[in-house]
Design a protein around this nucleic acid. Structure first.
Length: 479
RNA sequence: GGCCCCUUCGACUAAUGGUUAGGUCACUACCCUUUCACGGUAGCAGCACGGGUUCGAGUCCCGUAGGGGUCACCA
């Protein structure tokens, strides 16, 4: 039975890299009919952020990633929050001390800092100098009894090659002399990631550890810990990193990295999930758009790439627009309505539905239904008109022609697409010009822009009174 | 700097050791067209480099270069 876990630490927002890790775990579990577990790794009290867990839960739900065991749904291996399991880690640290695989260390942060700086100054790799490693049991017991602050460190074996197999990278080896005597239990009694992770993965019977490549170099420590406990390690799969445009690890400061940012900018969860799934993996198909069911069906860790992938927005934008186009206006309405309502509270659902029908093919994100389409809800400012378009289509001549047309429009009884088109075209022909000579000035006067849906359907939606009023205003004031 | 990982068009990627190195996004041109978008057609563009192994290497081996990750009482 496949059992995997997503183990975020609640420090605020959810990084898109975390989203992909969560997604791959989810896809792998579902593909194999296994169990997907959520575990909150909150052992660092100094980084605790109020509400981060709730936010993470909401984000996972938004993305459609579900869990079978976790803080919300419970399970046989709970609790699923590490801060509620501290006794467990202390007990396990004690057994390691008892069998000689770990030892108490009384070095102060100041001393460690001094040692580290000296090592760096002389060009030696910074590592703990193992001062407390050979303290006698009597000595350390005495100091502990005296209440001296201490941590528990792993006693890394000397002169050993640590080997493990990674599903994505194959055989990986580390010389144990490059591995530090890692702190397992901090002086505040909380475990570090390394201890808590191994204890929990074992107790929760995790079969596959699927995580980011930034963990690859700590994996030998983990393998050593499994050995120290006498446990069978799980299988490892280290995912290639998501990268900035400059190929460094994807980070804030170079653009959006929070899943919440993408949601707020009007990206659909299906599009983000589809996009992120294909960053580092693909099923060797020419197809690019996949439903979640297809992703589950085809997902395979063996086909995950080794190299990092740049998180490029162009393709995400394209995918998002594909998803928007595929949806029905009725499906789109509840997603778009709150965004429009926020700025234009008086817009009715019925009206908005018409706008969605006209705009859904030319929009990239949900927020484009607001920003990009504002002239449907309010009088245009003309500030967004393309200057080239304006200078070409808003001339003394075109204004005069538009003024000539105005009475005919006002006299029009049926204000719909067909009547409008017939009227304008007939007027153009009667006056010996092309319809375009009228269409562009009307578009500019009524929308303030040089692009948008077909003019006649647009006018039909805006309505006769509003359209004529706008043309009047533009003729009077727009230069 | 030590250790580890990685390397196919600008980006995401495909390719049982035998292909004119394929697809998607972006970009360019043309078609459609009242604009924009959609759609259609065409185009631009890549195996990091050097050695091997082989009849034959993007694919296997070695080296070089470049990039990245990691070296905390953070995860």
């Amino acid at each position: 039975m496949v059992r995997v876990r997503f183990a975020p630490s609640p420090t605020g927002y959810v990084h898109v890299g975390s989203l992909r890790t969560a997604l791959y775990n989810y896809l792998f579990a579902r593909h194999h009919g296994g169990v997907n577990i959520l575990r909150v790794e909150d052992t660092d009290r100094t980084r605790y952020v109020e509400g981060a867990v709730e936010n993470m839960l909401r984000t996972m739900e938004w993305a459609g990633i579900t869990f079978d065991e976790g803080p919300v749904q419970g399970g046989a291996c709970g609790p699923y929050v590490q801060s509620e399991r501290t006794e467990l880690y202390r007990g396990h640290a004690d057994t390691l001390i008892a069998n000689g695989k770990a030892y108490p260390c009384f070095c102060t942060p100041e001393r460690l800092d001094t040692v580290r700086k000296a090592q760096q100054a002389s060009g030696i790799p910074p590592m703990y100098d193992r001062l407390c490693r050979n303290l006698t049991k009597e000595e350390s017991d005495k100091r502990i009894a005296a209440g001296e602050a201490h941590v528990i460190r792993m006693r890394v074996p000397i002169g050993e090659i640590v080997k493990f197999q990674d599903i994505i990278r194959g055989d990986v080896e580390f010389d144990s002399k490059t591995i530090d005597d890692q702190v397992l239990l901090k002086s505040d009694g909380f475990p570090t990631y390394h201890l808590a992770n191994i204890v929990d993965d074992h107790l929760m019977q995790i079969t596959h550890v699927i995580r980011g490549e930034e963990w690859l170099s700590s994996t030998p420590k983990h393998v050593l810990l499994y050995e120290a406990f006498g446990w069978e390690p799980p299988k490892f799969a280290h995912l290639p990193l998501l990268l900035n445009a400059d190929r460094s690890k994807l980070s804030k400061r170079q653009g959006d990295v929070a899943v919440e940012d993408f949601r707020d900018k009007g990206y659909l969860p299906q599009a983000l999930v589809n996009f992120v799934a294909l960053l580092g993996w693909n099923p060797s198909a020419t197809e690019e758009i996949f439903t979640i069911h297809e992703l589950i069906r085809d997902f395979d860790l063996e086909r995950v790439n080794k190299g990092g992938a740049v998180f490029g927005h162009d393709k995400l934008d394209w995918m998002n627009s594909e998803y928007i186009r595929k949806m029905s206006p009725e499906e789109l309405l509840p997603l778009v309505q709150p965004l429009v309502f926020d700025k234009f509270p008086s817009v009715s659902d019925e009206y908005l539905l018409k706008v969605i029908k006209l705009m859904q093919e030319r929009v990239r994100t949900l927020t484009d239904f607001v920003d990009f389409s504002s002239y449907f809800y309010t009088v245009p400012t003309y500030a967004e008109a393309d200057e080239k378009y304006k200078s070409k289509h808003w001339t003394a001549e075109s204004k005069a022609r538009l003024a000539d047309l105005l009475p005919t429009l006002e006299a029009l009884e049926t204000w719909d697409h067909d009547s409008l088109e017939r009227t304008v075209r007939e007027f153009a022909e009667a006056n010996g010009t092309g319809a375009g000579k009228l269409i562009h000035p009307i578009r500019l006067a009524t929308t303030g822009r040089g692009m948008g849906p077909g003019l006649f359907e647009l006018l039909a939606v805006i309505g006769k009174a509003e359209a004529i009023a706008r043309i009047r205003t533009a003729l009077g004031s727009l230069q």
